[in-house]
Design a binder for these strands. Sequence first.
DNA 1: CTGTTAGCGCTTTCAG
DNA 2: CTGAAAGCGCTAACAG
Lengths: 342, 342
Amino acid sequence: MPRRKQPTSHDVAALAGVSVATVSYVMNGRTDRRIPVETRDKVLDAARRLSYAPNRSARSLRRRRTEQVCLVVGSIGVPAYDQLARDIHARADEAGYGVVTIVVDSRARAEKAIDLLQQRIADGAVIAPDVGYLTESDLTGLARSGLPLVVMSNTATPDGFDVVRAPETAACAAAFDHLFGTGRRRVAFLSHLHEFEAADTHPSERLAAYFDALERHGVVRDDGIIVPGANDRVTAYQRVAELLARPDRPDAIFAASGRGAISAIWAARDAQLAVPDDVAVVGAGNLPESLITRPTLSTVGPSAADDFTEVARLLFERISAGVPAEGRVISDPWSFHPRGST
Amino acid sequence: MPRRKQPTSHDVAALAGVSVATVSYVMNGRTDRRIPVETRDKVLDAARRLSYAPNRSARSLRRRRTEQVCLVVGSIGVPAYDQLARDIHARADEAGYGVVTIVVDSRARAEKAIDLLQQRIADGAVIAPDVGYLTESDLTGLARSGLPLVVMSNTATPDGFDVVRAPETAACAAAFDHLFGTGRRRVAFLSHLHEFEAADTHPSERLAAYFDALERHGVVRDDGIIVPGANDRVTAYQRVAELLARPDRPDAIFAASGRGAISAIWAARDAQLAVPDDVAVVGAGNLPESLITRPTLSTVGPSAADDFTEVARLLFERISAGVPAEGRVISDPWSFHPRGST
DNA sequence: CTGTTAGCGCTTTCAG
DNA sequence: CTGAAAGCGCTAACAG
């Protein structure tokens, strides 16, 4: 079975006995052209018989738009990114757009991503990785080149692109104050891997809040209880189990992810420790799951369940605007949600 | 700030004082053309100064390949799909390919997906949704049109595309036999939503295995303990909590997902029921998390952790082969992994 | 109402 | 070693 050459609009035109222009008009269902039903049907019939589908690359080249949007995330399997993806897909679907996903978890991949966007692989992009692989100048560069961009970042300043923020500092401070205020003295920090690696050079917002709180409450920092492992449930469980097995075990755990926090609850139980009496647990992010654990999980996170429809809206607004709008910034600060685990 | 026209190879050629052909050769780093370093540098310099990036649509049109692969999944946030996505992304990265993801969770979306693939949005695709929205004729149609295709399905027969199977029946039968064999009489089935809806028309493999087992063990089917909710952790928790609150509560729960099974463990605990003594739990799929719950989770699933590198390999092999290969089928049957929860 | 035609920006033969 | 030119398949002026 040889790889058949795909039929083109010429083939359809020939079979239908019309011109390629007519084929194009019919296939695009253009209403500004008055085409008699008869011609229309001839074309559609020919198209169906050849199972013709207009070539996407050719159309994109000619129309100067791809009808794809690009979603750039930091990794796969993070609940918040999943929700973002769902919301983008939903909006894209309505607009007849496709979604191409790029995972940026290293500087090399970041450069590749920039390059692809520069090559106009998509008509617009949402940039979500919360790590520093993408610099502000990468973003302004892209925006300058005319690409509609929505950036999810607490540090970037809008400059030809929109910025959506979710400031964490106040919420984290409140959580730490609560922990220290209720007598906890050894508060461990279960961090993401990249966060751990950059702890001293570019501390994440939550890590900075942690250091601040230590100082505020006169507690000396102990790097032994700052551990990576929040990225996945199993690693988190293991790291926390190790922490809790130490003679000088922590009396509280702040996890940089909701999944990490839930693993911490499992680990505490397995170590025969009561949550929150023996060890308190706080997680970052608003996992719906926080409400079905026992005890329920105290969190720092957005006030409501993750919802990125606004991000999607901004992006498509920018895309259809055609002309670059002023950079907007939307901010929805996190808050501390004390529940059963503290 | 007006939307700047993207620079083209002509602009670069003009600035560098060479022809567009030379620009193309340099940009593609072609070694079959001997280009003096001097010329090369002039071109690269001009390209950098204009921040030129070759237009992807034009290149795809000319080269007749997009250098993208398409990943078609059934939903977002399913651990196995996540692993599939990771493995595809990894392989695609090596090959310099992009990944566009399509979510198919309705017949309408399935048709849209077929159409996009027909339009050659990608050079090949992995089709993973385990639901019936994509028919076998959709698949053969695509394959006939010359699109390299790898299909993950236990029912499809290779026909111009490769098929990767993970047969569940034997493993499920073993799990149910174990449950009934150890005296369980009321085995509930926590299903996926689509699975629930098609229970009587096109029962899923695991559901069919369940019905078979009921018959084999002389237990009469009770639709009251077949409930949807395996799709997400919170819903699963709620459904199981309801089941366990009934006076005629089940003494075992088979969950169609690992996440559902873990929620079942939480729900059992909250109902003061011991697992497995009061209620046994089995989950489908091999979540790494199965080992960190208490008790550990018995599962039906692949023999090792999810690994789809082989799927990715098949796809790229087909893509680079250029000519359609015979349809191959790879099969890795599930097995029953009894652990603490039974 | 329909067809002819000029490109979109790139790659690649083929001449020089 | 380099350039001119054809053309990938489609859309959208423009002409009829």
